[in-house]
């Protein structure tokens, strides 16, 4: 009997795991991967999704099974079994979630570090001409770490972002360009230094898996390296007023040559290049 139960339990668990892995691979649960940050995010998502599916299907299954198996049938009277507790069992289901949570926490720490979350912000932005190294800068996640993209010689793109009700303005200090669209060359690390003119906004590109609030009176920084050409939406994710839903822009990821072309055409300082 015990053996049979064990076999059932193990095979059902395996089925759930296989089903979860299949689902996360085959259902379109996430948008296109367009930054070096995104594949790392998707890896974390996959792990969380499979763990989540196991727990959810497991507990739901137990609840439904109990309701059917232990339902009161017509003509039955009396009570259930008087079990009040079971110490080993309770220790077991305290320890297992604790271990799972510890694993998830350590794993997501690792992911966070690989995304560049732990790098010092003053270092990551210290070569940005407009940031005084003493200035307090908050926020910031995302890869500028060159080794991960393997193209270490590529120069970094610095853009100053201004958010206001209800638009984003992108200022390229090197070329004195002010643009309503963000243009970035594929493969180059990009640093955005963002500040809001009025209320709190948030800069979000779903395809980059990155978001950072843009705060008045407090510059924030976000780093990323685009990896796939295309036009992706920039979405304001923090309620900022009546037209919040319409506060969108576009990030154009293009080949470095196309980017150079765009940069030259728009630059007010001819001759300035990357």
């Amino acid at each position: 009997m015990l053996q049979k139960t064990a076999i059932y339990t193990i095979s059902i668990s395996l089925l759930i795991i296989v089903g979860g892995v299949w689902a996360v691979d085959n259902l379109n649960l996430l948008p296109v991967v367009a930054s070096s940050n995104a594949p790392i995010y998707d890896e974390l998502f996959k792990v969380l999704f499979v763990i989540g599916i196991i727990l959810f299907v497991g507990i739901t299954g137990l609840v439904i099974y109990s309701l059917i198996r232990f339902r009161k049938k017509p003509g039955q009277f009396g009570d259930g079994i008087a079990i009040e507790d079971n110490l080993p069992l309770e220790i077991f289901w305290t320890a297992v979630p604790a271990i799972v949570v510890l694993f998830v926490g350590l794993y997501s720490y690792d992911i966070y570090e690989r995304m560049g979350g732990m790098q010092s912000l003053s270092t990551s932005s210290h070569d940005h001409h407009s940031i005084n190294s003493e200035e307090k800068v908050w926020g910031g996640i995302g890869l500028t770490s060159q080794k991960l993209i393997g193209e270490s010689s590529l120069p970094k793109i610095n853009v100053d972002v201004t958010a206001l009700q209800f638009a984003f303005l992108f200022n390229y200090p090197e070329g004195e360009i002010v643009s309503g669209e963000l243009h970035v060359p594929r493969g180059h690390p990009v640093t955005l230094k963002m500040e809001s003119k009025d209320v709190i906004h948030a800069f979000w590109v779903p395809e980059f898996r990155l978001k950072q609030d843009v705060i008045p009176g407090q510059p924030t920084v976000i780093n990323f390296t685009p990896t796939k050409n295309g036009r992706y939406p920039i979405i304001c994710a923090e309620l900022c007023g009546p037209y919040h839903g319409g506060m969108r822009s576009t990030v154009v990821v293009e080949e470095p040559e196309e980017y150079q072309e765009w940069f030259k055409q728009n630059s007010k300082q001819p001759g300035m290049e990357l």
Binding site: I59, S66, L67, K72, G80, L89, E90, W93
Partner: peptide
């Protein structure tokens, strides 16, 4: 989690 497992265990073997 403890609470949820305890509730499931309360269902288990009951006369629901």
């Amino acid at each position: 989690g403890i609470k949820f497992f305890n509730w499931v265990a309360t269902l288990w073997g009951g006369r629901i």
